[in-house]
Nucleic acid binder design. Structure first.
Lengths: 338, 338
DNA sequence: ATGAAAGCGCTAACAA
DNA sequence: TTGTTAGCGCTTTCAT
């Protein structure tokens, strides 16, 4: 069995005693081929270990069967899971996926230009498109799905968690435990998911008849350090609270660290709820109560819609909201004030 | 400015009043082009917003400028970091990278076949190639770099941490603190890095004149759960130890959880050292002493060598060992027995 | 049901 | 320095 794949359709044709076109028909599963001819061709393909050249096929067909996924980075657990979901779905449907990270808008712009300008890819999956205004560089002429943000004019749609409901759910959990002064550490305010979670927080407070206090809200940047610093800032301003809702688990962990340094124990003195249910969330001290969402599934769904948008141009933009669920562990507890 | 990129080299040629070949020369930065002609061509390119079609170029040149990276999954922090490093280096050198995960050998084989058989990619970066015998499916006719394992015959080389030295270093740290009975939770024994770290462990013991005790060694599977279970197994067998060296941080965290349930406190009763310095390692309780290695850099280096292997066929296989460093936090302490 | 011809957009080789 | 001619390996059209 020859190991080289430099065998072409013509070699197969010659061996089978047919035209190269007939070989093409067999490869592509065309119906109108004489069964006997088909067999001869298939035998020749097997004998020569022929495999079609994807590039030549792309050239002739005018499309590449390749999609791209761009994230601010590849190591954030939620991004990585989205990518894994997207890649799995892409391959399930016969596409390959180029993965790339762009940490800042200029790199993002260059990347888009290379990917789309060269017609290397049929569509784009963009994770977190609203940090540092990078959405300004989104292309208009290529199917584009957004993950973790709402769709804008020129996109084919978006997939995100029902952030509003998730934020409401987290806050409600703390309210149910009797907490009334709930500090809220958000992500960067420019991101859609931050705003939506904040809306959910406000909605839950309002429904419970608790006045919204802006002093309790602090903007973080998703890092554990920012969670830590947010708590310090609260303490410096002598803001009173009995619970903390952090918009991700890393900030929650940072907050817990800061609280401990202030000799405040979680959950006895202060309750803390996170968001994401990151790996090992249950291994922190205390095991983290959090909001779980299926981020692998988010990636699958986004890719599914991207492929749909590519294969059926002109179909209306899709906006998908995925559900989240509360995971109660040991970082939240009844308020002592009750 | 036309937004469509369906403009071809011939359109540019027509507008500039030259042959398409001259346009090709300008695009490719060929020297021997009359400066004035060049300017006319560049003006035409700008006017038509022409961008070369990467697929056509691949077709004509016979190569794709695309590499592939395959990992068991995309969410493991070390894999994700390697991928990020590899992708960054690839793009820096003008290549794109297809990323894919294959959780089991059959999926791996299929993936390789699709990627390589179709001649879609110039080379392969394979992360953790020795789990479940997937290395059997490595292709012989394409440059292949291994990450996290030693190179075998048919590969172009490998990049990994100096695992032996790292294992020795971790063990030595515990020995320096006076520990003599050091439990060792390994990764799967089929993996090279597991074996090397184990060798380092043995070497350090031997150098310190401490007899190797096989009862102290337990095979884990990298998961926190396996770290937890390993400790339980040790306890059930009533094996005595004052310190634990876990081959990754997740297992270390699991071990700490198990110890706590046995009312043994880290580091007062038992010291624990991990491996990897995963994100938030410093946020666990207690903050984890561990062995840090630059995993992004590992990815960069592997990609650099892969591209080298592709661009200079016939050059000898490279074997790179990267250094690791000890990070001392609060999960290790002097042995009480001293 | 099969084959011949043309062409996808580019580069390589040769000619002028 | 520039243009012409051939392809890269495949699919698409149009004959047969």
């Amino acid at each position: 069995m020859p190991t080289s794949s430099r065998v072409t359709i013509r070699d197969v044709a010659a061996l089978a005693g047919v035209s190269h076109q007939t070989v093409s028909r067999v490869i592509n599963g065309f119906e109108r081929v004489n069964p006997e001819t088909r067999q001869r061709v298939e035998a020749a393909i097997a004998q020569l270990d022929y495999r079609p050249n994807a590039i030549a096929r792309s050239m002739a067909q005018g499309h590449t069967s390749t999609l791209a996924c761009i994230a601010p980075n590849l190591t954030d657990f939620t991004f990585a899971s989205i990518i894994e979901g997207a890649e799995t779905e892409a391959r399930r449907q016969g596409y390959f996926m180029i993965t790339a990270s762009a940490s800042e808008p200029q790199a993002f712009a260059t990347l888009i230009e290379q990917l789309v300008g060269s017609r290397r890819t049929e569509g784009l999956l963009v994770i977190n498109p609203y940090i540092d205004n990078r959405y300004e560089f989104l292309p208009a002429n290529v199917p584009t799905m957004l993950v973790g943000a709402h769709a804008r004019d020129l996109t084919s749609g978006s997939v995100m968690v029902d952030e509003n409901d998730a934020g409401r759910m987290a806050t409600q959990h703390l309210l149910d435990l009797g907490h009334r002064r709930i500090a809220h550490i958000t992500g960067p305010l420019v991101e859609d998911c931050t705003q939506d979670r904040l809306s959910g927080y406000k909605a839950a407070l309002q429904a419970a008849g608790v006045a919204f206090n802006p002093d309790l809200v602090i903007e973080g940047d998703w890092s554990a350090t920012s969670g830590y610093q947010s708590l310090q800032s609260l303490a410096e301003r002598e803001v009173q609270f009995t619970a903390v809702f952090a918009q991700n688990d890393r900030m929650a962990v940072g907050a817990i660290r800061a609280l401990r340094e202030m000799r405040l124990y979680v959950p006895d003195d202060v309750s803390v709820i996170g968001f994401d249910d990151m790996p090992l969330a249950s291994y922190f001290d205390p095991p983290l109560t959090t909001v779980r969402h299926d981020v692998f599934c988010t990636g699958c769904e986004a890719m599914r819609l991207l492929i749909q948008a590519f294969e059926h141009p002109g179909s209306p933009p899709q906006q998908v909201l995925l559900p989240a669920e509360l995971v109660i562990r040991h970082s939240t507890k009844f308020s002592k004030e009750n």
